[in-house]
Design a binder for these strands. Structure first.
Lengths: 212, 212
DNA sequence: CTGATAAATGGACAGTGCGTTCATATTCTA
DNA sequence: TAGAATATGAACGCACTGTCCATTTATCAG
């Protein structure tokens, strides 16, 4: 059974695609790029990563497939770029002086981004593709994972200097235990969770599970 | 550039494959199954999940491609089964009475399994494939992720009853923060780690990062 | 303004892999 | 031992990638 048969995939001619142009010749780079990213983003959100092929993007964006091969090494890499182009810029990490509150704020925003803003599937699929596609892996770490981890680390460093974290605390581990717990459920276990998990998660990371 | 060109993939005729048989007709089920799983496991370990196609497994195992379609819904699902057939059975969780020591033992075994026994790539690739292949997802959670989480939870429950964990501790979160931290680095960040991480990880989970 | 360069286009082709069907030969089982 | 189950080879259609090409047009340097 082909789970990706053509009939299942709705093909909505993209608005940005090919506005009544003639057949051939060079077109403005910005126009082409915008049409491609728009179509790729739509496809990723609507039908998932497996539906995002060069063939479909080319048709939907009104662009030659050759052009896609020219600029993106793989459909996955295009998907990653399209997703980042559309998702919000990285949020600054708040610093209200209250570490617990700031961690809850930021982590809750992360969970809501996943659960309420439709990021869950694209994120899971992109991280998934990154495991076998080096181009996706690079795009993901450079554009998303590592920058965001750095923001978290900075906030934790400040807290540590202020004595709100132990001097010997390993800040990378704290990050891994906060965000990694969410990714663990999302990617590895597939068990549900929502923003109500966040305060408990932060309290566990700050105070541990052992008796005081 | 095709990173999977035929020339790069060494094709080693599998030992279990087709020992000088005639062309047609039914063959012993056990023989066929063993040859398939052996070839699939070899391919997965040697060349990675993307190289594990029905075509290649069929040729390498000396088996008809039709047979593979009959018994496995996708190459990913076959890869998952092949990997579990070859990896060690789930280890019992030790209970020496020392929770910290037991957690370190078990988590260290996990990290060593990843890093020293070649499980890192197959695990990452299988979890990756699970994000877009429901059959892989099911095989992974049923055969690996959920059973192992249950073992960890049981050990934690005992500790909690003995007062070694707070009564209001969330045991799922503890699991997420221990194993999830490793998966976070493996899958999301792609940053290196080894068994020396484990004791710090356990101490953070037990006592938190905040000052006492 | 103009000529050189860069780039997008449609078209075609081969290669790989999936999914399916079929008649046939063989094993398994009741 | 008869009938059911199933592995086999072969073939076909389909989707997608990767690559080439000649042609047409945008862009930019001088």
């Amino acid at each position: 059974m082909n789970t990706l048969s053509t009939s299942e995939v709705t093909m909505s001619e993209n608005a940005a695609g090919r506005s009544g142009r003639p057949g051939r010749g060079r077109r403005p780079a910005a126009e082409v790029r915008a049409a491609v990213l728009a179509s790729a983003g739509d496809l990723l959100l609507r039908d998932g990563l497996r539906a995002l092929t060069f063939d479909r993007v080319a048709k939907d964006a009104g662009v030659s497939r050759t052009t896609l091969h020219r600029w993106w090494p793989s459909p996955g890499a295009l998907a990653a770029e399209a997703y980042f182009a559309r998702s919000r810029p990285v949020l600054d990490f708040p610093d209200t002086g209250d570490l617990r509150a700031d961690l809850i704020t930021q982590l809750r925003a992360f969970v809501r981004w996943l659960k309420d803003e439709g990021a869950e599937r694209p994120v899971a699929e992109l991280v998934g593709a990154a495991q076998t596609d080096p181009d996706v892996a690079r795009a993901w770490s450079e554009n998303y994972a590592l920058p965001r981890r750095e923001l978290a680390r900075e906030r934790l460093r400040v807290a540590q200097r202020q004595g709100r974290l132990r001097a010997d605390a390993d800040l990378d581990i704290v990050v891994d235990q906060l965000w990694g717990a969410c990714y663990h459920r999302l990617l590895v276990l597939g068990t549900p969770f929502d923003a109500s998990l966040v305060p408990r998660l932060v309290d566990h990371a700050l105070h541990g599970a052992a008796p005081r």
